[in-house]
Every structure is written in structure tokens, then in C-alpha cells.
Design a protein around this nucleic acid. Structure first.
Length: 419
RNA sequence: GUGGGUAUAGCUCAGUUGGUUAGAGCGUCUGGUUGUGGCCCAGAAGGUCAUGGGUUCAAGUCCCAUUACUCACCCCA
């Protein structure tokens, strides 16, 4: 038997309503904030990601699905969306048509990691990117936007962590301070962290190793060494979050893995999922456009993991009601009336009312059981004396009440149901 | 890439110190008097006990290998 490959999964009909619900919610919140949807190809030239995300990152160095096509071009399935969106804005000069572009997406992403709870090789993200302004109001808007979606789903145990990485100049200076601080402690660091000394020293803060954490407790913090402009922007982000009544905590240790971040970074964490607890992450990337293109476009954005969010919803019992069932089930009382029943069903369907009926030649009892299983609101009986008299019987499945309706009045009934 | 766990019906799982024909609940299907669901009752279908080897008179059960799944590390959504 051929099965799905590791780290991918089928989303079966029984659970699809959750995805529809989440997707609809995302679209409506995005509309409230005036973000426009953008769709980009599932694969891009490899160079876009290696340059945009950063050669030294884990994503680029070991997690990308990269392959050659027949013309020997190196292609990569998108591992994240920001680089693609920025590429698209540059390519179509959206930044020249209007100064600020507010964009959102819902899309699959691909990373070749070892799968575990809340981590898949094909996974799905929704997210937003605002390109063309470095105003802190947009940084705050990203956090508010993401938080509103999660809140509207009914999620409770959410922690928002924010930090500022400042600008490269102050960050470089700070790195020398950190190196100096660690210089006499290097031997005590974990092997992983020793490697980070050269590749990405900031990420030693992320280490889960206990001795590492102890060492880092007294380390100098980037937040204490920001330039004045970055500090002021960070203050404004915090002000706006307070005003929006979005709870957050400043986490000076929050260091995101991607190279392109400047100033604001943030993460939304849930403690009702497994160890992959980040539902959402994002930040500002004012330098990215220049990296992959020919001009500067300041930007800020976030990405949220749909599988993780749905997992959290499951564990917190949100989204438990599936309302994607047909409205009425047609019960065929006499076997000879197959065509007639089918035709009445078609009438409902073409009028925009969702209908199911029997395709298996089953007994009336079996048809009723099916109607009950589907949880339809009504059952409509076609056949017997009533049908001979030009009538059908409409039964309410909750109350059990039945009423006799002239077939000639069916159009009116349909109108009433729709109204 | 590293480490732990698991593998018996469509799903969730029992299966004793190895011992006849492998079980339950849920789900599915049929029926419980002409044409009416849920609850209840009766019945039916459904299994290469992951795969391959080994030990034994005898293996779902013990041993080894393989594969798959799963959780965690690294990192991330």
C-alpha cells in the first residue's frame, strides 16, 4: 500500500470544517485590517531563499526541499513566505504604485525536518506582511492582528513575547560585548553553544541546556545596548499594545533564528500544545528587500502555524461543532419514485439549499438513519398517498413535527427556507 | 542527524507464567410487521496479530533484524 510520506498528512472530510472555519476567520480579520491576499508559486529559485533567509540559518543549511528541474535550474519548495512576498513586491513594483502594501497569505510551506507533534514537513501558515513603512504602529498591528485571530478562535493560554534586535551597528557592538563576557566561560558551554559562538552568538540565549542558561543569566542584554532610535521605536510598540489591551511580556532573550530581522521581534506561545509551542512568530526586516533586490523597502510581518493552532484548539476544546451538513434529506418512500425524488432534490440544490438523498436503494428506515447521522434539520418524504395527491411531507428532525405540503407550493417553501 | 517509546478489526484498546477456533467497545451493514431517525434489542461483515528470521513440542506473547509510526533534542510555525 502506498501511504503519505513522512511528515505529510491527509486532511480528511471529518476535520475539514476546522480548516474552513480558521481560514474564514483569518480572511475576515485581514479584511477588517485592510490586508489584501497575495499568492505566490509553491517553488522559487533556490537563491531567493538562500540569500533572503540567510545561508547560516538552519532552514537554508539543512531543511530545504531543493531539486534541479530539467533545465538545470535549482528550485526550492518555499520554506517560508516572507522572501517570496518581498520578491513579488519588488518584481511587480508594488512599492512604486503605492507607498504602503499590506498583504496576507494562507499557504503550505515545506521543510525537511524530523516530524514531531506540531511539526510537519508540509505544513500551513497564514501570515501578513506590511511593506513600505518603518512605523512602529505597523509592528504593533502585526501582533494585534495575530493575537485577535487566536483570541477569536477561543484560545486562552497564550503568551506574547516581544523583544527588539535593534539595528546591525548596535547589534555588532553588542556582540563584541557578549563575546568578551563569554570569553572566560567558553569551556563550560554546551557543544551546541560553542558552535554558536561563531555562527550566531545571540542564539546561545535560546539554549535549553541548564549550565548555558545559568551562564547567560548574568550576560549583558541587547536591550540595554540599543541605539536611541531603536529604543524609542520599541517604546512606541509597547505603548500601542497596552492601548490595544494586548497582554505581552518583554523577553530580552527572544532571539529569532532568521538573519533578516531588525528591531521588533515577537512570538506567541501556547502551553496547550507539545514542545513545539510557538504558534506564531514575526518581526521587522527593514534590510531584506535590499538583500534580494535592488532597493530598500522596510517591512514587518508574521507567520502563524495552522496545524499548531488547530492542535491547541483541540486541546482547549475550541471549534467543536461541525455545521457543514446538508439542510434536508429526501426520503424516497416508494422504489418507483427514484427519478421524481432525484428531481425534487435537484430543485433544492439549484435553489442553493444543500440536500442529500439515497443513492444505495436503501430502506426507509436506513434513509432515516442516514438523515439522522448527517444531522439534517429536515427530512422530506416523497411517495405514497400524499405523492399521488400532489403532496410531500416535511418533517422537522428536532421536534419531530410533520407538515403536508403541496408539491406545487415547493418553490414557495424553498424561498421561505432561504429567506 | 541523535535519543526514547509503540506496532492486534475502519477507530480506541484487552489478550494471564508461551498452550485449542484471537476478543471488547465504538463505527459500518441488515432486521425488530405495509411509510419515519436518535434510545433499546437481535444478528452480520470485518484480522497475513507491521514484515523477515530465530528459540520451542507449541509464539499475538520470548529473542534478533528491518520497516513504519510516534515523542523529544537541534531548530522552528
Amino acid at each position: 500500500m502506498i501511504k503519505t510520506i513522512a511528515g505529510t498528512k491527509d486532511t480528511l472530510p471529518i476535520e475539514i470544517y476546522k480548516w474552513h472555519y480558521l481560514e474564514n476567520l483569518v480572511r475576515s480579520v485581514m479584511k477588517e485590517f485592510n490586508y489584501k491576499e497575495i499568492r505566490t508559486p509553491i517553488f522559487e529559485e533556490t537563491a531567493l531563499f538562500s540569500r533572503g533567509i540567510g545561508e547560516s540559518t538552519d532552514i537554508v543549511s539543512k531543511e530545504m526541499y531543493t531539486f534541479m528541474d530539467r533545465s538545470e535550474t535549482s528550485l526550492t519548495l518555499k520554506p517560508e513566505m516572507t522572501a517570496s512576498v518581498v520578491r513579488s513586491v519588488l518584481e511587480h513594483s508594488l512599492d512604486k504604485q503605492q507607498q504602503l502594501n499590506k498583504l496576507y497569505y494562507i499557504s503550505p510551506m515545506f521543510r525537511q525536518e524530523r516530524p514531531q507533534a506540531g511539526r510537519y514537513r508540509q505544513f500551513h501558515q497564514f501570515g501578513a506582511e506590511a511593506l513600505g513603512a518603518s512605523e512602529p504602529s505597523l509592528d504593533a498591528e502585526m501582533i494585534i492582528l495575530a493575537y485577535d485571530v487566536l483570541k477569536k478562535l477561543g484560545l486562552k493560554s497564550l503568551d506574547i513575547k516581544i523583544n527588539s534586535l535593534g539595528i546591525p551597528e548596535s547589534r555588532e557592538y553588542y556582540k563584541t560585548l557578549l563575546k568578551k563576557y563569554l570569553s572566560d566561560k567558553t569551556v563550560h558551554l554546551s557543544d551546541e553553544s560553542k558552535k554558536r559562538l561563531d555562527t550566531n552568538i545571540l542564539r546561545i540565549f535560546d539554549s535549553k541546556d541548564e549550565t548555558d542558561q545559568k551562564i547567560m543569566e548574568d550576560a549583558p542584554l541587547l536591550l540595554e545596548h540599543l541605539d536611541n532610535d531603536s529604543l524609542e521605536k520599541f517604546e512606541r510598540v509597547k505603548e500601542l499594545l497596552l492601548l490595544a489591551q494586548v497582554p505581552f511580556e518583554v523577553d530580552p532573550r527572544l532571539v529569532r533564528g532568521l538573519d533578516y530581522y531588525t528591531n521588533t521581534t515577537f512570538e506567541i506561545i501556547s502551553n496547550s500544545v507539545g514542545s513545539q509551542s510557538a504558534l506564531c512568530g514575526g518581526g521587522r526586516y527593514d534590510l531584506l528587500a535590499n538583500h534580494i533586490g535592488d532597493r530598500n523597502i522596510p517591512g514587518v510581518g508574521f507567520a502563524a502555524g495552522i496545524e499548531r493552532i488547530l492542535l491547541a484548539c483541540e486541546n482547549e476544546n475550541c471549534l467543536s461543532i461541525n455545521d457543514e451538513n446538508p439542510y434536508v434529506y429526501l426520503i424516497r418512500l416508494n422504489k418507483e419514485l427514484v427519478k421524481e425524488t432525484y428531481n425534487i432534490g435537484l430543485k433544492f440544490r439549484r435553489a442553493g439549499i444543500s440536500v442529500e438523498l439515497d443513492y444505495l436503494n436503501r430502506s426507509v428506515k436506513a434513509q432515516m438513519r442516514e438523515a439522522n447521522r448527517l444531522n439534517t434539520r429536515k427530512a422530506l418524504f416523497v411517495g405514497g398517498d400524499e405523492y399521488e395527491n400532489g403532496e410531500v411531507v416535511l418533517k422537522d428532525m428536532d421536534t419531530g413535527d410533520q407538515e403536508i405540503i403541496k408539491i406545487s407550493q415547493l418553490d414557495g417553501i424553498i424561498k421561505k427556507i432561504k429567506g
